[in-house]
Design a protein around this nucleic acid. Structure first.
Length: 285
DNA sequence: CGCCAGGCAAAAG
DNA sequence: CTTTTGCATGGC
């Protein structure tokens, strides 16, 4: 394992638990495994700003630096928002999520993962994604205890499966949606190399052409797969926050890098589920 | 067992 | 155009 010193706090646990990624896992005793494309990283948290990693320096610089979004300082970005007189809830959320990063993940994987995520809990999404990888993904051997890791399946492979077959991974009615992701990608309509050049609006529209991809899923793919840091996916949890902390008025418009702050807020919501659910209003009859 | 999940498309108003 | 409804299944 090689030592990495970071300029910014980074929490492997919070990132892994924050609902933006479904394949990173804690293997036990603080050892985490991340997968990005066909690259696999084993990683340990030594302190807030120190990691031990399994890759060499070149791979860290070329691949994982971008994956963990290390070229921008989240601390510097959040500092002005922590000043007294600022938004008190946002301040609390940022403190709660210290060490959060918004990962830059594979666009194809994000498209499929968030398409099958709708109306599923995060643990259930993890299971479905894992089953897809185990059934249809190529295996890659690693140095860690001879472990063979199943990579995320290629579009061509999923496009050859019937919806019924895909459904066996627990996709339910979303199986047809995943098939459409694969078909359109194979047909060249959603090639990441082309889409990444589009402006936000055009990219959004292209993603929404897939059956089962709407506003929320498209924004997740843009934020987590294409690095569009202004996008704010709005799901039930974000809606509860807007209701209960902002009296129904979305504050995101006047946040710079709203997508990054959104991730702190979303993580805060996951960590305070009970209170947010409990205070839900409007169940009068 | 019952309830809810990082929503969406289609039907109804 | 805006609002309501049905949806498959795993976690807990």
């Amino acid at each position: 394992m090689r030592k990495i010193i970071l300029e910014d706090p980074l929490s492997l646990r919070k990132i892994t638990d924050s609902g933006q990624c479904f394949r990173p896992v804690e293997l036990g005793s603080g050892l985490y495994r991340f997968v990005c494309g066909e690259h696999i990283l084993y990683c340990r948290q030594d302190s807030l700003c120190e990691l031990s990693v399994s890759c060499d320096e070149e791979e860290w610089e070329q691949r994982w630096r971008q994956y963990f979004d290390l070229d921008r300082s989240y601390a510097a970005l959040c500092a002005p928002l922590l000043e007294p007189g600022g938004d008190p809830f946002l301040r609390e959320a940022i403190c709660c999520g210290e060490g959060m990063r918004v990962l830059r993940q594979d666009p194809w994987e994000m498209l499929v993962s968030f398409t099958l995520s709708q109306r599923k809990s995060i643990p259930a999404i993890r299971t479905a994604v894992r089953l897809l990888c185990e059934r249809y993904g190529e295996r890659k051997h690693t140095a860690y205890e001879g472990e063979a890791v199943a990579l995320f399946p290629a579009p061509e492979v999923l496009a050859q499966c019937s919806a019924e077959e895909l459904g066996e991974c627990g996709l339910g009615y979303r199986a047809a949606y995943v098939r459409d992701c694969a078909e359109k990608t194979c047909a060249g309509e959603l090639l990441p190399e082309r889409l990444e050049k589009l402006p936000d609006d055009a990219l959004f529209e292209a993603l929404c052409s897939v059956r089962g991809v709407g506003k929320k899923v498209a924004n997740c793919v843009m934020l987590f797969g294409y690095g569009r840091s202004k996008r704010v996916p709005s799901d039930v949890w974000m809606q509860r926050i807007v209701e209960q902390k902002y009296a129904g008025e979305e504050p995101f418009e006047h946040w710079g890098h709203a997508g990054l702050l959104q991730q702190y807020v979303f993580y805060y919501a996951l960590e305070h589920k009970e209170e947010l659910r409990g205070q839900e209003k409007g169940e009068r009859k």
